[in-house]
């Protein structure tokens, strides 16, 4: 899973960069900017945003501001708090996914097209429902894992996150 996301996300962000690069070159060097390029670029852009967020849910690194956690001293209390927040997240996420599903169905029915190349906008509009559904599933998975940890009473392991956290600092040192 880690690999799938790594390659997909890097491919998407590179595609976005390359499309911008092409626009500069065709406009400035060849004096003939490509029509409709921005419409094509929107597809990887939106999937990049949404799958980026899905990956944050998968890694359990969505942005949080747990003010309350500061006041808790034991790991167990923190875990219980995490469970509660996971549970709330799942309720909200399911509700949002339901509305995203209605949007998904609507855009499939209306089948809009972009204004220059007439690409079906469904290609990227569908990302929201798919993304939110995956985010909900990953959150349910975290809830399950945290719950098992709580009843078995051993600290949880987070292998994915550690590798990425150390990435930037080690790599910078290497570059010196």
């Amino acid at each position: 899973m880690e690999r799938v996301f790594k390659y997909t996300l890097t491919a998407l962000i590179s595609l976005v960069a390359v499309s911008q690069f092409i626009q500069v070159i065709t406009r400035y060097v060849f004096q003939t900017p490509v029509m409709g390029l921005e419409e094509m670029a929107l597809i990887p852009t939106i999937w990049l945003y949404i799958l980026g967020s899905v990956n944050a849910s998968r890694e359990d690194t969505q942005i949080r501001a747990n003010v309350l956690e500061i006041f808790l001293s034991t790991d167990k209390a923190k875990l219980v708090l995490h469970l509660i927040s996971d549970l709330i997240s799942i309720v909200i996420s399911s509700w949002l996914t339901w509305w995203a599903w209605r949007y998904f169905a609507y855009s499939m029915r209306v089948w809009k097209e972009t204004s220059t190349l007439y690409l079906p906008t469904f290609v990227y509009e569908s990302a929201l429902f798919i993304g939110l559904a995956l985010m909900t599933l990953f959150t349910i998975n975290h809830l399950y894992r945290n719950f098992m940890t709580l009843i078995k009473n051993h600290p949880k392991q987070d292998n994915d996150v550690l590798t990425s956290e150390t990435l930037t600092s080690t790599a910078t040192k290497k570059g010196q």
């Binding site: 996301f5 790594k6 390659y7 996300l9 890097t10 491919a11 998407l12 962000i13 590179s14 990049l48 945003y49 949404i50 799958l51 980026g52 967020s53 899905v54 990956n55 944050a56 890694e59 690194t61 969505q62 942005i63 993304g131 985010m135 990425s164 990435l167 930037t168």
Partner: peptide, 16 residues
Amino acid sequence: FDAGKESATAVGSILI
């Protein structure tokens, strides 16, 4: 690839 994934995840979580 790590950089691509990291950047995309940071951006995705802020944009959502």
